[in-house]
């Protein structure tokens, strides 16, 4: 040791001036750099494979026999649904293991809370990061869709901000459950009983009128239905103003309300 390690204790620390949540988001971004290649290539491969197999392969059969769905090719119908479904799956995945891990395994949340950051910074920073991730995922997906020629309207670009909102609406309720859970056993159930059924039945693969009447109502109450609806309307350029405004409102309200519940859960678990 040649020099003083600490120059002076009481001197005010120079700071950059970033708000706490932004620091948290930037930490996620920094950590993400470690895995971005595999993550990005997965975001690219998934739509390519699905659109090729189901959109083109299965789709030509459906188009041949049923003349497409509601006047559009099956590929055009399917692609936006898959995009919204992908946003759901990735948002939920990011809100389960990584959240409980940061509490119990890596204990990163505790490290953050020993600094000037508070639980609200953790929640907001995390959800903003989810929004950023969903922007990346949806932009890549849109790029693949464009290559398949299924983005039928310039409005399709609005799918990126819609996916950001939808991602928060899906991730926040799950994160607020995950942060309180003591193990990861509930996550398999979330996948089996929530994510997969939503993915399959939220008009992702077939239109609402194919469902029995009772289930139609149920489907319309779920968040992914509205995400799919809105994404599809934008990609096809077929806006139904009232219905799509309701879709957007649903997602915004869910995102807002579950952000608040997430903030309460984080505080409950981490400030004891």
């Amino acid at each position: 040791m040649t020099d003083q390690l600490l120059e002076s204790g009481a001197r005010p620390q120079p700071t950059v001036g970033w708000p706490g949540w932004l620091r948290v988001t930037s930490v996620y971004a920094h950590t993400y750099r470690r895995t971005w290649r595999s993550s990005m290539s997965a975001s690219f491969l998934f739509p390519v494979l699905y659109l090729a197999a189901m959109g083109v392969g299965l789709g030509s059969l459906i188009d041949h026999h049923a003349g497409g769905i509601d006047g559009v090719r099956y590929l055009d119908f399917l692609a936006p649904g898959l995009l919204a479904g992908t946003v759901l799956q990735i948002a939920v995945a990011e809100a389960t293991y990584p959240v409980v891990g940061a509490v119990k395994w890596t204990r990163v949340y505790w490290a953050m809370l020993a600094s000037p950051l508070g639980t609200d910074d953790l929640v907001l920073g995390f959800l903003v990061w989810i929004a950023v991730r969903m922007a990346m995922v949806s932009a890549i997906f849109l790029g693949v869709m464009a290559a398949f020629g299924t983005v039928r309207s310039p409005l399709g670009l609005l799918v990126v901000p819609v996916s950001m909102i939808a991602g928060v609406a899906f991730a926040a309720p799950v994160a607020s459950y995950a942060v309180l859970s003591t193990n990861d056993q509930g996550f398999a159930a979330i996948n089996r009983f929530i994510v997969v059924p939503l993915f399959l039945f939220s008009t992702t693969f077939f239109p609402l009128h194919q469902l029995p009447v009772g289930l139609r109502v149920v489907a319309q109450l779920t968040p992914l239905f509205h995400g799919v609806n809105l994404t599809r309307a934008l990609c096809l350029g077929q806006i139904a103003p009232l219905q799509n405004a309701a879709d957007l409102l649903y997602l915004v309200v869910l995102a807002g309300a579950s952000t608040l519940s997430c903030a309460a859960s984080f505080k409950k678990r981490l400030v004891q």
Partner: peptide, 14 residues
């Protein structure tokens, strides 16, 4: 190194 760097960022240090 990164562990130190990120921890410093929690404190908003340049």
């Amino acid at each position: 190194e990164d562990n130190l760097y990120l921890y410093g960022r929690y404190f908003d240090l340049p």
